[in-house]
């Protein structure tokens, strides 16, 4: 399994740097995992963790402790995380804590649209929560903590629609006044390289005013199903 191979690589690197803070013999709990489950609400828009967790807008977080940055196959990472992974960065407690404090301070060109958690208790708790899904990656607890209904139930024909990326490129002109085309973000989320289905669901959630943002409700409100599919196709392919 690739997970094992990666784990071994991470251990080898860990030796070269320092013993991982979360390794055996580390007696003190990181934080309150139960409280951390609620803090994780900040993350669930993009990240899944637990049984059956899959990559979405962000990579799944099973086995994140000890994983080399940017190393899940079939997930399209930002250039920044790919680079840090190649340079050998491993997600140990220290790096995860720094990343959660201010993602861009650790990885300047990350695509993770998250400003960071200033509150150390919140960081500790959410890391304690995540830690539970890293001990034995092949032995994830049965309950699926992030299993949640999609924001909007869309008919299969809408989800199956194949968008025209060229049309999406034209339509995207309206988006790029605020959302940066290179995926960089600063107060307004990045929207490039999202899985098309996530993009489509999010836009329909705005269109139906289930998601609260007034600008996005207005913009999505006048997009047709084809136009949303076209935008999803275009932005999904951008890097």
């Amino acid at each position: 399994m690739s997970g094992r191979v990666l784990g071994a690589a991470a251990l080898a690197l860990g030796v070269a740097v320092a013993a991982p803070a979360w390794g055996e013999g580390h007696a003190e709990p990181i934080g309150d995992a139960e409280a951390g489950a609620e803090v994780f609400d900040y993350c669930v828009g993009c990240h899944e963790v637990g049984a059956g967790a899959e990559n979405g807008i962000g990579p799944h977080l099973n086995g994140i402790f000890g994983r080399t940055a940017g190393s899940i196959e079939n997930y399209k990472y930002s250039k920044g995380l790919t680079r840090e992974g190649k340079l050998g960065m491993v997600w140990d407690l220290e790096h995860l804590d720094a990343y959660l404090t201010n993602p861009k301070a650790l990885v300047s060109d990350t695509r993770m649209s998250f400003d960071g958690l200033d509150d150390k208790t919140e960081r500790d708790d959410v890391l304690a929560y995540l830690r539970q899904f890293s001990d034995n990656p092949q032995n994830i607890p049965e309950a699926a903590p992030t299993a949640r209904p999609p924001e909007v139930e869309l008919p299969p024909e809408i989800l199956a629609m194949v968008g025209d990326p060229d049309y999406g490129e034209y339509l995207s002109n309206e988006c790029t006044t605020c959302h940066q085309a290179d995926g960089d973000y600063d107060g307004i989320p990045g929207i490039v390289s999202w899985p098309e289905e996530d993009f489509v669901i999010a836009m329909h959630a705005y269109k139906r005013k289930i998601r609260p943002h007034p600008v996005m409700q207005m913009m999505a409100g006048r997009l047709t199903d084809e136009e949303i599919a076209a935008l999803a196709a275009y932005f999904g392919k951008l890097e």
Partner: peptide
């Protein structure tokens, strides 16, 4: 306000 800061970065890049 934070959104406006993001918009500024977005439109000037655009």
């Amino acid at each position: 306000f934070e959104e406006s800061v993001g918009w500024y970065a977005g439109i000037t890049a655009d």
